Amino acid sequence: MKTTQWLGWGPGEQAQQHYLVQPRALAGGGDVRHISEFLRASGWRDKSKKGGPLSMESPDRTVRVAYDPYVLPGGWTIHGTVTGHQDEWWAHLGRQTPVEIVAGLTDALARTRSAHAPDVWAPLREQRWRSQPEAGQVTATSPDDTAWMQFHQSPDGTAMWWAGAKDGQGNGWTAQFTASTPLHLVQAFSAALASPEPVMRPLGRVPPSTRIRTMSVSVLPSQLSAWQQARITAARAATWARNTGPRTNTRPYARAGGTHTRR
């Protein structure tokens, strides 16, 4: 097995084994701090009770993001109140929804909205998802058939967005969004769902699925800390720029590196 050592490895640090997982939709939930720390750095208030579920509130108090793993079915709930021309809306994402996909939506909550008209299906088309228009609904399915995105409208006029992933072995999750959910948020979610980029999981946290592909990565604790801090710094910088002047473009985190072996 060929190994390559990072030049940045310092004395006294022990590399830890992680895995890059594809497709990301089947990578499992991940670390909720990926979301909470970004929102906190973006000026959101932590309303969580000690020992209780996560609860974050937007600076203008119009949106709440909560994660509760202690109830069934558990998972993420995002709720927006009535504001101006925006109706009340909510979204629920299952407990095993990868945090990197949830963050597609929650990160967008903390960023300035683009002036371009949102198109939920555009990120899926770019990744060659198959679209299946039917009576009352439109469904897009990933090329490997592990994930889907659907807009469904019932005969009574009730409409909703529905998405999810499954592998046929019991691993998976679903997500629901009310039709009133701002489309730019649904598009941000679909872009994160369709992204071909792998996500990282530590040893012991990779779901036992025959539908995933993994790459072993030896990573230093200082590298993990640096990547996490880069995401937080980017959130703070964007918040400062939004509040004081023109926006700046910053990359939220760097590509992972280390010793690679395939399995």
Rank of each mutant, 00 (worst) to 15 (best):
G94W: 02
P252K: 09
S131T: 07
G258V: 09
H184W: 04
V63F: 06
G10Y: 08
T181W: 04
T250K: 09
D156N: 12
S216W: 07
E57G: 05
R61I: 04
A188T: 01
D60V: 04
R95A: 09
A226Q: 03
P207I: 09
Q187P: 07
G84K: 09
G84T: 08
L193H: 06
D46G: 13
W129G: 10
W240H: 13
K50P: 06
V206K: 07
A230D: 03
G170P: 00
H260E: 14
R205F: 13
H34V: 11
W76V: 10
H92P: 09
S218A: 15
R211P: 10
S180Y: 10
P155W: 03
G74F: 09
G43S: 12
A115N: 12
G170V: 07
M1D: 13
P246V: 03
V63W: 01
P11I: 09
S131H: 01
Y67C: 13
R205C: 07
L26K: 01
S225V: 00
T112Q: 05
I101P: 08
M149N: 03
E88A: 14
G168L: 03
R125G: 15
R125P: 14
W240Q: 12
D145T: 11
L203V: 01
V138G: 02
Y253K: 02
A188S: 06
A15G: 15
H85D: 13
A91F: 06
T248E: 13
A110R: 02
S131W: 00
Q150R: 12
Q228R: 10
E37L: 13
Q86A: 14
P196W: 06
V219Y: 06
T239E: 09
T181P: 04
A117V: 11
E88I: 09
A110E: 02
F177W: 15
G43K: 13
R262H: 14
H85L: 07
F38A: 14
S225D: 06
A159V: 01
M56G: 06
D87N: 04
P252N: 11
N243F: 00
L105N: 05
G257P: 11
Q228G: 00
